[in-house]
Design a protein around this nucleic acid. Structure first.
Lengths: 211, 211
DNA sequence: ATGAGAGGCGCGATTATTCACATTGCCCCG
DNA sequence: CGGGGCAATGTGAATAATCGCGCCTCTCAT
């Protein structure tokens, strides 16, 4: 009994992972010191080596835990027909996930900017599936959009929309005058993203034109 | 004569600024070492102190040079009536600027994630003007959209779109199979952004709805 | 020669990592 | 039941590398 995975007091290793996740996400791999991590947990830095081989292994473990959570929705989407409705639902799930835990987006952003260990693995596991060339939307008539060659750019744009909201949130806090992670802010962001997604689904062709 | 600002050989101070800009943008303030900067310039790190008081002053100078360039288009937009056409033109200018020099976006992203010196000043000078409550679009009939309360979110979204493209570019490089900063890629990104901006201008109300 | 700019040297702080050691709880054997 | 190990987990001290930064000297062009 007393299974530590079931809402019991978190183990030291888990508390280290929590602290490290926050710090890696905020400051990046190299700017995060093991002393900072240890301080948050309330132990001394050499004690970390009882739980993780070294700094890089700790970083790996943090990534692994996050990837397990965030890879799920895309796998689920691919488990069935890719219809408009299911894309909407998938996007909403992703947005809610990033609001619930902004750390993956932040880690990813650091990795994109500075590299760091396991960056290629991150790309492969999170993004590669979204850019597979055979990814088509069934049911709707998106052929016009698909043929425009803009589809990968759209995938990228919506990914940017979701991730950048999270990574830029600290800057937007006082510009918006409200907590970017509040329930109300989440609803607003969802409204906007869905409106833009509808625009893509209803794409009628034509480039830009200001008038 | 031999004015160093006019396409002559750049002075040492300018070469230091160039190197520091790239490194601060890639690795952030604290992860950038003055040794790295000096190496790029081809001098030893103590020599940097002949040109800049200390690391923070160097960072300040880098920011100042970037802000001078990137603040211009918004100031120009505000110099006249804010019409649909001029918003289109402003957005295109911004996108092209970020493609020409991705460093400001990257610097900003680091600041948003980790703080660092002068972050508040950055927010005030770049973003505050975009979120002024009296900012309205003249001419078009956007009242429906404005009344939806989503306007600041749209401003944020398009900012995210532009900045995140740049900050995530290293990750997208091999996913797209082409250089994200090529002319062709720029055109594609512009097409997509303009299409989404048109969707905002033609906003008809209504929330989401998948079918 | 004179002053700006480059380099050498080194101090003090921080970091990742290792090591020797203390403490704790648990299992097993007598 | 009791105690001898033993693994797990903590600690402080020590090490080697790196960093920001200041001091002092040298060099070279005007």
């Amino acid at each position: 009994m007393n299974n530590p995975a079931v809402s019991a007091a978190p183990s030291t290793a888990e508390r280290i992972l929590d602290a490290a996740e926050d710090l890696f996400a905020a400051k990046g791999y190299s700017a995060t010191s093991l002393g900072d991590v240890a301080d948050r947990v309330g132990i001394r830095s050499p004690s970390l080596y009882n739980h993780f081989k070294n700094k890089e292994a700790l970083y790996e473990a943090v990534l692994e835990r996050l990837l397990a959570v965030f890879s799920a929705p895309l796998a689920e989407l691919e488990g069935g027909p890719v219809t408009n409705e299911r894309v909407f639902h998938w996007l909403e799930t992703i947005v809610r996930q990033h609001h619930a835990n902004p750390n993956l987006a932040r880690l990813l952003q650091h990795a994109a900017l500075s590299g760091g260990p396991h960056t290629n693995e991150l790309i492969d596991r999170l993004f590669r599936p979204m850019f597979r060339p055979d990814a088509k939307i069934e049911g709707g008539d998106l052929t016009l959009f698909e043929n425009s060659g803009l589809q990968p750019w759209a995938v990228m744009a919506f990914n940017n929309l979701v991730m950048s909201y999270v990574t830029m949130a600290p800057m937007y806090r006082d510009l918006l005058g409200q907590d970017p992670f509040s329930e109300a802010a989440l609803e607003n962001q969802l409204s906007l993203i869905k409106m833009l997604l509808r625009a893509v689904f209803e794409y009628k062709g034509g480039a830009a034109g200001a008038g």
